[in-house]
């Protein structure tokens, strides 16, 4: 599995596209998951749950709840992977 930044970004975009029913190419990193992409809170949790399974990471629920934008989701996964590498 590729864990470099562009690869994480592409995976996040593809998953959001699937959940929100939008074209992956139209997703911008500053988009808000709810207001701009139409994900409800449960779909946002599903997004983080599926990403955490894909990357084998274990986010806290308060981190999941706080990730409101595409950029925040990418950063969360990247940061946990970095934490795990450092541990």
């Amino acid at each position: 599995m590729q864990t470099d930044n562009p690869s994480i970004e592409a995976t996040v975009h593809a998953l959001i596209a699937e959940l929100a029913g939008v074209d992956a190419a139209s997703i911008r990193n500053q988009d808000h998951l709810m207001q701009d992409l139409g994900l409800d809170s449960l779909q946002s949790m599903e997004l983080l749950s599926r990403l955490s399974e894909t990357y084998g990471v274990d986010p806290d629920m308060d981190e999941v709840m706080a990730a409101a934008t595409v950029d925040a989701v990418i950063s969360l996964i990247r940061d946990i992977l970095a934490r795990n590498m450092a541990a």
Binding site: L42, E46, D58
Partner: peptide, 8 residues
Amino acid sequence: GSNTIFAR
């Protein structure tokens, strides 16, 4: 589509 964070 389950949230599996807690179960895992």
